[in-house]
Structure formats: structure tokens, C-alpha cells
């Protein structure tokens, strides 16, 4: 194929028609299936006829290369799906038997080798909800400033750099910060409050990002219309922009919660305990949490093999919680996007 084109170029023929005829001859030569039959080339070929024709011009090598690589890319995408499928498969196949009403509503018994995980579920819900209540207003307000008030400048650049760096801070470093600042310096102790605050800081960039995205998608005409009617900027934001962006912002909020629910490292030193027989009664209590419970049972328990079903069961509950929230957010967003397109 390579030779073909350069050869045409070299002979430098001026007449396109002649050149084309030669090209057909060259193209045809290696292709034994030959030219299209006369009837087909003459009649206005219907779609059926077209399907039956064999390729005439076929850049074999280039087409083959494309075919090869496209399949490679497709396989790469499928590997991700496969990975998700395998993980979910093993968790569900091994975990569903452990799940029962008792498992979900009872505290652990017998040195955590039996019983349920109620305190962990409650603990995780408390932590996530707490984190959400703290980070949501801060995140949404930050996004409002960035999208609606700020003009591009050094300050905004600094804020954005701060947000992107905050998003990149490793979860265990958040844990260290929570331990030294909330637990020790502010004397909150190992508690729901300290853990929720730590998790809130972590989810802040997610919420800011999602809110900014939602605000961006509100058409400028809404703002102009409202301002044009004599509304102040604040009124415009509160009455026009935020309601229009609300679904998108809530989606971001859900994603934020689901992320905090699955985090382990930040709560290890700030909120979670190995075992606690009672449900928490105040925000200054320490709690058990699903992710930490999995970690503890799988690595530090005395009966690692015996509690394996419990580990799978806990993992399944955590996955259902997190993936469930994500799925809701994803579907919600997909519907939202469809609406926007209309």
C-alpha cells in the first residue's frame, strides 16, 4: 500500500482521470474478488445489492491496523467492566448468605465472631451524614463564590489550586490531621464529631466540583432575565440559579456522601473503634464503622478464617450502600443531562 501512493506521486501525472484509471488497475490487481459486476454498477444499486459487494478499494494494511487497535481499545474498556464484575461477583456470592435480619439489626457477639453489624451501620451513617451536613453548605457556598461572584484573578487561582490540592491529599494524611487537630488540639477526642469533620474536609472538593458544574450549566439567559427584572445578584442566585442547579448539586452531594461512607483511613485515628457494645448516644462518642470493621476483622481479629463470612457480609453491606448511592446519582444525572439536551 505504501508503495502505491508514492508511486502515483512520483509519476506526477497531471490528468486526474488517467491517474485514477491507473489507480483502479493497481487496486484491482491484488484483489481476486475483482471488480463490481456490471449490473450492480449500472443499476441504481439498492442497499441489498450494496451489502453483497466485495470491497474494491481496500487499504488492507491500514484497515487491518485500525481493526487491531480498535479491538485492543475495546478490550481495555472491557477489562474494567470485567474487574468490576469479578469484584462484585465474589462479594455477592460469598456475602449474601451472611446477610439476615439479625445481621443487620444485632450488635456483634462472642468477641465479634458472631452476631450482627448494627453499630457499624449506625456509625457509618452518623459519620457520613455528619460530614455531609458540614461540607455541603461550605462546598456549595465556595462554588457559588467561584462561579457567580469571583472574577478570574490571582485570588481565584489560589483558591482553585487549594481545592485541587486538597483533592489530592492522601486519605491517611487527612487522618493524621484529624488526629492532631480535631482529636488532640481541639480536644474532641476520638468521636463522631472529629471523624465527621475529617471526612467533611475530604469530601469538600467533590462537592465544590459538582456544584460548580451544575452552576455552569444554568443558562446565562436565566441570570440576565432575573437581573433585567430588577432583582439583585443575591436574589438572582437564591431564586433562579440555585433552584435550576439544585438537581445537579444534590447529585454531587450524594456522590460526596457515598465517598465518605467508604473511607477508612481518615476515621481510623479520629472516630472509629475496634469494638463498642453500645450505639452512640452523642456526637462525642466513638463509633464502630463498616469499612473499619472489615479491616479489623480481616487483619487483626484472632479468628480471621472463622469470621470470613462476617467479613464478606459486611463488605457486601458497605458495597450496597456506596454503589447504591452512586447508582442513584449516576441515573439521576443521566436523566438530568437528557432533560438539558431537550
Amino acid at each position: 500500500m505504501n508503495v502505491k501512493v508514492s508511486a502515483i506521486n512520483i509519476d506526477g501525472m497531471k490528468n486526474p482521470e488517467e491517474r485514477y484509471l491507473q489507480e483502479i488497475r493497481r487496486e484491482k490487481a491484488p484483489d481476486p474478488t475483482g471488480p463490481i459486476s456490471e449490473s450492480e454498477s449500472q443499476t441504481a444499486s439498492s442497499l441489498e445489492n450494496r451489502k453483497q459487494q466485495k470491497p474494491l478499494f481496500f487499504n488492507k494494511k491500514r484497515t487491518l491496523l485500525q481493526h487491531l487497535f480498535f479491538n485492543l481499545f475495546r478490550s481495555a474498556a472491557m477489562v474494567n467492566a470485567l474487574a468490576l464484575f469479578i469484584i462484585l461477583y465474589f462479594m455477592i456470592a460469598n456475602g449474601w448468605r451472611a446477610i439476615s435480619i439479625d445481621f443487620l439489626t444485632q450488635p456483634p457477639r462472642e468477641m465479634m465472631t458472631q452476631g450482627g453489624i448494627l453499630p457499624c451501620i449506625v456509625g457509618t451513617l452518623c459519620l457520613s451524614l455528619g460530614a455531609f451536613l458540614i461540607s455541603f453548605p461550605i462546598g456549595v457556598s465556595s462554588a457559588i463564590y467561584l462561579q457567580e461572584y469571583a472574577s478570574e484573578g490571582a485570588l481565584v487561582r489560589a483558591i482553585r489550586l487549594g481545592i485541587s490540592n486538597l483533592a489530592g491529599v492522601p486519605s491517611v494524611v487527612f487522618g493524621l490531621f484529624g488526629l492532631s487537630f480535631f482529636v488532640t488540639y481541639l480536644k474532641m477526642g476520638v468521636s463522631i464529631l472529629a471523624g465527621a469533620l475529617t471526612l467533611a474536609l475530604m469530601s469538600l472538593p467533590v462537592i465544590i466540583g459538582a456544584t460548580e458544574e451544575a452552576l455552569k450549566s444554568v443558562p446565562a439567559t436565566y441570570r440576565e432575565a432575573s437581573l433585567g427584572l430588577g432583582a439583585t445578584k443575591l436574589q438572582t442566585i437564591l431564586r433562579v440559579v440555585l433552584p435550576a442547579a439544585a438537581p445537579g448539586i444534590l447529585t454531587g452531594g450524594i456522590l460526596g456522601i457515598s465517598r465518605t461512607a467508604g473511607e477508612t483511613a481518615p476515621i481510623m485515628f479520629t472516630a472509629a473503634v475496634f469494638f463498642s457494645p453500645n450505639l452512640p448516644r452523642s456526637i462525642f462518642d466513638e463509633v464502630m464503622a463498616l469499612p473499619y470493621h472489615i479491616y479489623v476483622l480481616a487483619t487483626a481479629g484472632t479468628e480471621i478464617e472463622v469470621t470470613r463470612p462476617l467479613q464478606y457480609g459486611t463488605a457486601l453491606v458497605l458495597i450496597s450502600l456506596v454503589l447504591g448511592m452512586n447508582l442513584i446519582a449516576i441515573l439521576f444525572r443521566a436523566r438530568l443531562r437528557k432533560k438539558m439536551r431537550r
Partner: peptide, 25 residues
């Protein structure tokens, strides 16, 4: 697409035609 477009009597919407080559021409 329905109907036909021919370049030098060659139907360009026939599957026999390599689109890449067509676009070069």
C-alpha cells in the same frame, strides 16, 4: 442515504468503496 452518487461511474456509497481512499481523492 438513499440513491446514488457516482464518481467516474463508481458508486461511492457501495460498500466496495474504501471511504479512506475516497476521501483522499
Amino acid at each position: 442515504v438513499e440513491g446514488e452518487i457516482k464518481i467516474d461511474d463508481q458508486d461511492i456509497y457501495a460498500p466496495a468503496v474504501d471511504v479512506v481512499n475516497l476521501r483522499r481523492r
